[in-house]
Write a protein that binds this DNA or RNA. Structure first.
Length: 567
RNA sequence: UGGGGCGUAGCCAAGUGGUAAGGCAUCGGGUUUUGAUCCCGUGUACCGCAGGUUCGAAUCCUGCCGCCCCAGCCA
């Protein structure tokens, strides 16, 4: 593992770890943590961090903590901690006994703050939030010292103790690090360490009336847990000097190293918690687990698998370059996984009735169909075939373009696992709409018999008109009309970029009867249509609701588009 | 106009001074009772630009350009 050859092709973070292990920096220990704030649901961006932190711990025989960064009780909630734990487990990672909270360290944090005060490295400020902002200066002008910056250690200690005791109102005082008001890095202009918040905390109740700020709590928590490599996203790069300053000025048992990587963004999606919440509040989606949401809960409900999401993240890589990855890359991983495991079945989304004029009335037969053409172990099922069936409206065209090899007047097509049929008549209403299609079927071409070997251009899917069951199917499309709705578009809100067709509910789809007994949460491929999941929330016994996870790749759609472009 | 970071093909990404891997997408072709799967093949990437060092530069140096982040008592 210390061989330099092993570095080749590894991402820069793993290379650093390999080098650290080689030099004996942490005695070969690798300890990481995933530190979410419980103020929202996990999304695809978090998955990157989860896979990195837990994945690295696994690979290097290390440990990974799940630590809730719960330092701001006004925004945090137990529902969020529950959902985060469920999501991390679902993704396939295990923190074992390493579930912690920043709140576990509140007492230690307090002691650390006292030490900083005693050393003259921190002071209690009485400036208001607005005044502090004014004193901070701007990006190009230095700030100026607070008039309270030189309070005596005794006075600071007394004030800080009374802040804890709840003697003051919110905002009356704040504990600040004493660093440099002229620092070019804004994070070093005497950043706040503690603020007063007289509010119940979901872990500590009313035990505290002051809460530590992120930079302070996070750094000390990392050190106390023995974190060796503290991995975070790029926006915290500017905070690293403060992270180092805190480590330099406290006697902590361990010195972690912060390393930053770029976030993962998926085109046509968002990862801003505020915007995600706005979608819910605006009623544009049904909740955090709406199948269109880029949350882990949404992807699970939609039918994405943990394996496919993990593969996607692995393919994306770890770098410091801004990423905006095409949706197709994610969908491809989903297809790749589902292709292996999903049994096949037939369903018709937009039914068109076909009547076989040469089929005896009232007779019905059962035809065997493979549950997976490339994997015979998945077995065979029987599907009913009779005088009347439904086919997809799109699979019949009166006046088709070239290269269309499905059903047309006078033309032949093969019915999957059944017979070759021929269209002999088209029945329309007065408005010219097609009501049904009359065909003949060729009994000699029954699937599996020698007569079935005849070459026919197309094969289409179908269901029995009498024996199929009507179900609801939900089709999803991208949530937004812009590839990067997360970017700043001045004056616009997410509502301005919503795709009005992101949800298409098909209430009268027809499926094989065998599907009705399947459990919610089961994946299935509807042949030629896509992969579907039986919805875990809205399905009722005997009344499944199907979510389309992703379509199959569709080369006909490309040909059709190209032909349209020629016109 | 302060500080920090990033620029290798449409999207990701390897490359760590010796002459540009790989994946996805695209476009061809083969197999196929899913226009799926599977299998083959397919890219002159002025390595952001311009100079310099070197026998040799995507890799080192200088200057420039473009994009991202930072002025919460949020994380």
């Amino acid at each position: 593992m210390t061989d330099t050859i092993d570095n080749i092709g590894k991402d820069f973070i793993r290379q650093i770890i390999i080098a650290d292990n080689a030099s004996g920096k942490h005695d070969g220990n690798v300890v990481t943590r995933f530190p979410p704030e419980p103020n929202g649901y996990l999304h695809i961006g978090h998955v990157m961090s989860i896979c990195l932190n837990f994945g690295i711990a696994e690979e290097f025989n290390g440990r990974c903590y799940l630590r809730f960064d719960d330092t701001n009780p006004v925004k945090e909630d137990q529902d969020f901690v529950d959902s985060i734990m469920a999501d991390v487990h679902w993704l396939g990672f295990d923190w074992e006994d390493r579930l912690t909270h920043a709140a576990d360290y509140f007492e230690d944090l307090y002691s650390c703050a006292v030490k900083l005060i005693e050393d003259g490295k921190a002071y209690v400020d009485s400036l208001s939030a607005g005044q502090i902002r004014e004193y901070r200066g701007t990006l190009t002008e230095p700030g100026k010292d607070s008039p309270h910056r030189d309070r005596s250690v005794e006075e600071n200690l007394d004030l800080f103790r009374r802040m804890r005791a709840g003697e003051f109102d919110d905002g009356a005082y704040v504990l600040r690090a004493r660093i440099d008001m002229a620092a070019p890095n804004m994070n070093l202009r005497d950043p706040a360490l503690y603020r007063i918040r007289k509010i119940n905390h979901q872990q500590t109740g009313n035990a505290w009336s002051i809460y530590p700020m992120y930079d302070f709590a996070h750094t000390v928590s990392d050190a106390l847990e023995g974190i060796t490599h503290s991995l975070c996203t790029l926006e915290f790069e500017d905070h690293r000097p403060l992270y180092e300053w805190i480590l330099d000025n406290l006697d902590l048992p361990n010195r972690p190293r912060q390393i930053e990587f770029s976030r993962l963004n998926v085109a046509y999606g968002i990862t801003s918690k505020r915007k995600l919440a706005a979608l819910i509040e605006g009623g544009f989606v049904s909740g955090w687990d709406d199948p269109r949401m880029p949350t882990v809960a949404g992807m699970r409900r939609r039918g994405y698998t943990p394996q496919s999401i993990r593969n996607f993240v692995r393919n994306a890589g770890v770098t410091k370059k801004d990423k905006l990855i095409e949706m197709g890359a994610l969908e491809n991983c989903v297809r790749e996984d589902l292709n292996q495991i999903a049994p096949r079945a037939m369903a018709v989304l937009n039914p068109l009735k076909v009547v076989f004029l040469n089929h005896p009335q009232g007779e019905m037969e059962m035809l065997p169909a493979m549950n997976h053409p490339n994997n015979p172990e998945l077995g065979v099922r029987e599907i009913p075939f009779g005088r009347e069936i439904f086919i997809e409206r799109d699979d019949f065209m009166e006046d088709p373009p070239r290269k269309f090899f499905r059903l047309r007047p006078g033309g032949e097509v093969r019915l999957r696992y059944a017979y070759i049929i021929k269209c002999v008549d088209v029945i329309k209403n007065d408005a010219g709409e097609i009501l049904e299609v009359h065909c003949t079927y060729d009994p000699d071409t029954k699937s599996g018999r020698p007569g079935a070997d005849r070459k026919v251009k197309g094969t289409i899917h179908w269901v029995s008109a009498d024996e199929s069951v009507t179900v609801e199917v939900r089709l999803f499309d991208r949530m937004f009309t812009l590839a990067n709705p997360d970017a700043n578009h001045e004056g616009k809100t997410v509502a301005d970029f919503l795709n009005p067709d992101s949800l298409n509910v098909v209430s009268e789809a027809r499926v094989e009867p065998a599907l009705v007994g399947m459990e919610p949460g089961t994946h299935v491929q509807f042949e030629r249509l896509g992969y579907f999941l039986i919805d875990t929330k809205d399905s009722q016994p005997g009344q499944p609701v199907f979510n389309r996870v992703v379509t199959l790749r569709d080369s006909w759609a490309k040909i059709e588009k190209a032909q349209l472009a020629e016109i």
